[in-house]
Nucleic acid binder design. Structure first.
Length: 512
RNA sequence: GAUCCCGUAGCUCAGUUGGCAGAGCAUCUGACUUUUAAUCAGAGGGUCGCAGGUUCGAGCCCUGCCGGGAUCACCA
């Protein structure tokens, strides 16, 4: 209590006053029959506007609920703006329309900006032309103890806008109350995910759920979070991918499965990285990566269209078109186009010297595949703005992908790159259990050598493959990054409702 | 993990060569029955992120720490 600000103390006192007046500051319900936006649409000057005597033949009577976001008190009548999930509407209150004392005592003194109220009344248009609701009945639905930051807008300019990122991320609820555009981003994200889900459902893919807590982590190269299960006294990892479980389901006879999962990687934070993030993975039996490219194009085009109403989006002044078909370029060709170097069939030493000539630091631990990946990441990826499929990756980087059917040393893998960033990763899945075991063993050697991101050997996964997995195409899509692109956000924190931040010191208050 | 920038009232921000901590909005008191960044008159509100140091004197200079942002590295 002692730590309460002046304004908070005042609001707590108001709670007492309300209680003395027999008003419950936190009642149980309110019948809402309209939203702000509906009233603005439904109001018709010809039918609903009162005449000079205040008479309305066909009043537009509404019952709304929402938060008071502005208050203009003048003598015996006042205006305020009410904000509900649909938007804002102005409300007109007159002393003489409310029960004795309500206007002067309750409305003027005990209700604040930030409080949630229910109102009933009729719509009308004010002298200055704003469609408003003339209150006939008003109830407090929830008293706010903390003052809501107040932003004011005039001629499209926002004054006192809350811009502090930390405030907005930590108290996302306030950010959402204040900023419709933030809410819009998350609605768009939801629409995108929903479009992807229905797209896959329509193709008879089965949405499944696989373990988040895994005794062996796999399916990607990353450092995991570890945790512990008490009853079984066992170490568990939060999944870094769901790939290996989904492929077990293909072994089990599903023709197509997908999961939209939270994955966890114990790595640094940046505007492209949050430790927990959302991944879509899709696996389809009897298909290869060429088929999967078609699916990705179609799915992403569909999702962009569902959110934007167009297959084009604007990013940093650039127009990106997701219209099919996208360009497809083998990785080696893409490198040749951008750097002039033909890296096909080169030895590790030759590659190292090319990389060196391109200004890339090469150290002894880097194999051929890693060097090629560095060259690509430095000199090609940033230049790919329009969605482009890069195909056929070095085998060392892809321990779960199938060897290329005709190109030595490569696997059947593709990534879609867009705006200089990876959009998805996919391959013809490796289903030869003997090959898979030997690739895992290579990884195990790296792990033993101190590479914390190398994969663990998963014997049960090998056992599953030994029962026979059909040829399978697999796909992983970073949903947050796709959402950033589709909603035009520059930071992953702006497409994640509650991004991870360092803990803040929250004042822990004691009850009075 | 490295570098740079930022942290002042509930919110947005000023704060000069180091010299009594300010404004607008919000809040409080009063006036006002169609206002709209409502207006008018008055008032209150601060651990200047935290801890040290330099100085007669620190919001300002120095060091460390905490928190945030941007860039880089790792990754999706």
């Amino acid at each position: 209590m002692t730590d309460r600000s002046e304004q908070e103390q005042r609001r707590l006192e108001e709670l007492n006053e309300l209680s003395k007046l027999g008003i419950n500051a936190y009642p149980y319900k309110w019948e809402v029959d309209s939203h702000a936006a509906d009233v603005l649409v439904a109001f018709d000057d010809g039918r609903h506007q009162p005449d000079e005597n205040g008479e309305v033949e066909t009043p537009l009577r509404v019952s709304l609920a929402g938060r008071i976001i502005s208050k203009r008190v003048m003598g015996k009548a006042s205006f305020f703006h009410l904000r509900d999930s649909s938007g804002d509407i102005q409300v007109y209150v007159r002393r003489d329309d409310l029960p004795e004392g309500w206007y002067n005592t309750v409305f003027k003194k005990l209700l604040d900006i930030g409080d949630i109220v229910g109102i009933t009344g009729f719509a009308f248009r004010t002298k200055l032309g704003e469609v408003s609701v003339h209150v006939e009945e008003m109830t407090l639905l929830a008293k706010a103890i903390r003052p809501l930051p107040i932003e004011k807008e005039s001629d499209g300019h926002v004054y006192n806008e809350v811009v502090d990122k930390e405030f907005r991320y930590r108290q996302r609820y306030v950010d959402l109350i204040l900023h419709e555009d933030v809410k819009q981003v998350f609605k768009e994200r939801a629409r995108m995910v929903s479009a992807i889900r229905s797209f896959l459902d329509e193709r008879d893919m089965v949405e499944v759920e696989t373990p988040v807590l895994q005794p062996i982590y796999g399916g990607a190269t990353a450092r995991p979070f570890t945790t512990h299960h008490n009853a079984l006294d066992m170490q568990l990892y939060l999944r870094i991918a769901d790939e290996l479980y989904l492929k077990r389901l293909i072994v089990g006879g599903f023709d197509g499965v997908y999961e939209i999962s939270k994955d966890f990687r114990n790595e640094g934070l940046s505007r492209y990285h949050n430790p927990e993030f959302t991944m879509l993975e899709v696996y389809v039996a009897y298909k290869d990566y060429l088929w999967m490219m078609d699916l990705v194009e179609e799915m992403v085009e569909h999702a962009v269209l569902a959110v934007r109403g167009s297959t084009e989006i604007q990013v940093d002044g650039k127009t990106i078109s997701f219209k099919r078909p996208w360009k497809r370029i083998p990785m080696i060709e893409a490198i040749q186009q951008e750097t002039g170097h033909d890296i096909g069939g080169k030895t590790r030493e030759e590659l190292a010297s090319i990389a060196d000539g391109l200004g890339i630091a090469v150290d002894k631990s880097m194999g051929s595949g890693k060097i090629i990946d560095e060259i690509f990441g430095e000199h090609v990826e940033p230049k790919l703005i329009q969605p482009t499929f890069i195909t056929d990756y070095p085998i060392e980087l892809s321990p779960l992908a199938k060897r290329h059917r005709s190109k030595e040393g490569l696997v059947e893998r593709f990534e879609a790159i867009c705006n200089g960033k990876e959009l998805c990763n996919a391959f013809s899945e490796l289903n030869d259990p003997l090959d898979q075991r030997s690739r895992f063993e290579d990884q195990a050697a790296l792990l033993a050598g101190g590479d914390e991101e190398a994969m663990q050997l998963d014997d049960d996964y090998i056992r599953a493959l030994e029962y026979g997995m059909p040829p399978t195409a697999g796909l992983g899509v970073g949903i947050d990054r796709l959402a950033m692109l589709v909603t035009g956000q520059k930071s992953i924190r702006d497409v994640i409702l509650f991004p991870l931040l360092r803990p803040e010191l929250v004042e822990h208050e004691e009850s009075e």
